[in-house]
Nucleic acid binder design. Sequence first.
DNA 1: GTGCTTTCGCTACGAGTCGTAGCGTAATGG
DNA 2: CCATTACGCTACGACTCGTAGCGAAAGCAC
Lengths: 206, 206
Amino acid sequence: MQRRHPASRTGRPRSAAADTAILAATRQALVDLGWSKLTLSDVAVRAGVAKTTLYRRWAGKNELVVDAVAELFDELTLPDRGSLAADIEGVVLQFAAILARPEARSGLMAVVAEATRDEALRERIRASIVDRQKRLVIAGRTRAQERGELPPESDAERSARAVDLIFDMVAGSVVHRTLVSNQPADEEWVHGLTRVLLSGLAASAR
Amino acid sequence: MQRRHPASRTGRPRSAAADTAILAATRQALVDLGWSKLTLSDVAVRAGVAKTTLYRRWAGKNELVVDAVAELFDELTLPDRGSLAADIEGVVLQFAAILARPEARSGLMAVVAEATRDEALRERIRASIVDRQKRLVIAGRTRAQERGELPPESDAERSARAVDLIFDMVAGSVVHRTLVSNQPADEEWVHGLTRVLLSGLAASAR
DNA sequence: GTGCTTTCGCTACGAGTCGTAGCGTAATGG
DNA sequence: CCATTACGCTACGACTCGTAGCGAAAGCAC
């Protein structure tokens, strides 16, 4: 969320309560109506604010939904379960739990689809959602290297490519399982995913 | 595409040329406008047909776009390159080439998002798009077992779960790489994905 | 050819949404 | 008290939606 006037000290401040109410109302509207039938007028009514207030803070539906969905991923953390396999399973299960919520399912893919034709929206998604997740991959990898479960990185560029690959494989698999195949990413499935991934990484790193 | 009257022989037949023109116009509209700004009126003008003709054949925007996008996946085939690794790389590269097209990028994720709140649309996507892809996974797996690259299936249910996992990992990784991370699934990346996947499967099958 | 049936193109329509402008009021800081 | 900004509310033109009604066109059966 960008301040239009970074050093604006005068005037009536924007209501912080309105922000949280609007984002919560947006998520609930996603649950009730889905992406295409969600209207900003409806969100305004649900949040108890005027429609014009929405347009003063967000450029349109896309930007609003990105912010509303991004908040869902704030709860992602990297648990320390003692082993790389257990850590991965923990994160993936958290990720799956978020994607199980209807507000995430309806909103996330819709904004990704819109972002294919909107560079600014792509950047917003990257900064608000993707980077936050990728940080967990990097942290988990670093911790595994400290434990000796993965060999230390020799080449920086090569390491970056590995992180990108792992990230796309983990997040992509869970998203595809949940949204396209439409089946739950439960513990059994996550366990299988983790096993294939770790075996492949260990063998491929040689 | 369902015939309303399976045994209707009388009357003026529906123009097959109109069907192809409409679906092609829909894909072009996806390129030019994206999902949210695509209107059926615009598609009708591009296709050179009346708007009412569209509503006589499709229930709405969702159904039309699913059919338009599904045609893109018709070209998917399983090449015989001699080894499982080469076969996988071939299919994944085909899949990546399709997802590189803007009409696929904009359309596919949008209908997936809409499908989260529409059971009929989910079924339509499964039948028109997902099953077609999954068949390639099954065929490739069978061929690899005949070659002796993978152990023959002992348990049917266990085998089905493995196919599902592989499918979600392959398709999900490519989709996530292409649409979310917004980077090309080029040969180098596909090679890395294949290596991790095969190593993991071989090790995990023991 | 003559009917019969279905599709087609076209026009028109009410309903709903969009994003903006204008205005008076509320809430801050100087 | 005054300048400044945010807010709620109303109204507005422009656009899209999905449907109805009409006459014309294109097939098939006879």
